[in-house]
């Protein structure tokens, strides 16, 4: 392998980023922080997609296309997620996810 870049590097980077994002998503109380963590996870996926695109199928560009779609969807997700958080906040005056528990039972 030598010094050449290897897809595994990017995959490991992506996995680490995903793990960090997951940690954030699971451990933060603030809903917006969780949203941010989810963004990190999505970005991790994007790294994977683009890396695979480059190393495995450089001609097809499918990975990049997918990355673009992921980014698009992520933007929509953030917009909607934030709107929901703000809506909840206006009614309940809290952004603590543990207080968002009125959907139980």
């Amino acid at each position: 392998m030598g010094t050449a870049l290897n897809p595994s590097y990017f995959m490991v980077l992506s996995a680490a980023l995903f793990a960090i994002g997951l940690y954030g998503a699971l451990s933060r109380k603030n809903a917006i922080a969780v949203l941010i963590s989810i963004e990190i996870m999505l970005t991790a996926v994007n790294i994977n997609l683009v890396a695979i695109n480059k190393f495995l199928t450089p001609e097809a560009f499918i990975g990049q296309i997918f990355a673009i779609f992921v980014i698009t969807v992520a933007a929509a997700e953030v917009g909607l997620g934030l709107a929901i958080i703000i809506a909840i906040y206006r009614n309940r005056h809290t952004v603590d996810l543990d207080d968002f528990n009125w959907m139980k039972w």
Partner: peptide
């Protein structure tokens, strides 16, 4: 953590 709205 419950935050209350403060008047601005």
């Amino acid at each position: 953590m419950t935050l209350k709205t403060e008047e601005f």
